[in-house]
């Protein structure tokens, strides 16, 4: 068995708010292999977003270890985490999070920008990614000129452009109507078929069921971890 891409080992996250400490994650352990398609589900406030932020190296665990691609990233400094995010992770957000003043192709380029790619090369790659999500006719449009579904596809293209180890998505269909939501989910299915590793957080059971493995959280702990 190959070494896992993601390895969470007894990961805790506590938030201190004045006198109160909130235990958002209370010792979570699991592994993810390359090519897995995972949904993280659970009631509101159970720690899904917290876990995704940790997976995405946007935050550091309060305790425990997180190995990404065999490297322990739980104690890395800020610069190193930035580099990890830029080169090994792709993000898809509920609210798309495109930069409004940049065009579609420029938005897709951002991760490459911070990887010091030569410009013509990154422009090429961004174009290819736009084509892959079916937006090659919209390269020079600004985000506000696109529908929500199209914006989310731009975000997915952006998440793919640096060929990350893992793609992380927090409620990617949360802001979309059911038909564009379905389109986005089809896109995720395709990515999975191409061997990408996907982790997505969702409330929506119909979305969660498309994944091949579902991790359920409750009060910061894993309630169930089911493969289909």
């Amino acid at each position: 068995m190959p070494s896992p891409i993601v390895h969470f080992e007894n990961v805790r996250k506590t938030y201190k708010m004045g006198m109160v400490t909130v235990e958002a994650l209370r010792g979570v352990t699991f592994e993810i292999q390359a090519g897995e398609y995972i949904s993280i589900m659970g009631p509101s406030g159970c720690g899904k977003s917290t876990m995704l932020n940790l997976l995405g190296c946007l935050d550091r665990p309060s305790a425990g270890h997180y190995r990404l691609g065999g490297e322990d990233v739980s104690q890395m400094n800020d610069d190193a985490l930035s580099a990890v995010r830029g080169s090994r992770l792709g993000f898809v957000f509920q609210s798309y999070n495109l930069i409004q003043q940049l065009t579609v192709v420029e938005n897709i380029e951002i991760p490459l920008y911070y990887q010091d790619r030569p410009e013509d090369q990154s422009r090429d790659m961004a174009r290819r990614m736009a084509a892959r999500v079916g937006l090659d006719q919209r390269l020079e449009h600004k985000p506000f000129e696109l529908s929500g579904g199209q914006q989310q596809r731009v975000a997915i293209a952006r998440a793919l452009v640096n060929e990350p180890l893992v793609i992380l998505a927090d409620e990617p269909t949360g802001n979309l109507d059911s038909s564009s939501g379905t389109e986005i989910m089809k896109l995720f299915d395709e990515l999975h078929a191409q061997g990408k590793t996907l982790i997505l957080v969702t409330h929506d059971p119909s979305v969660g069921q498309r994944a091949h493995r579902t991790i359920r959280l409750r009060d910061g702990e894993i309630e169930s971890d089911v493969r289909r």
Binding site: G56, L58, D78, D79, S82, A83, R85, G86, S87, F91, N97, L98, I99, I110, P111, Y114, Q115, R158, N162
Partner: peptide, 16 residues
């Protein structure tokens, strides 16, 4: 602020 967050998530260091 939002743009800063996006850029940081996509690999920008503090320095950038």
């Amino acid at each position: 602020t939002r743009e800063i967050g996006i850029r940081r998530a996509l690999g920008a260091r503090r320095r950038d």
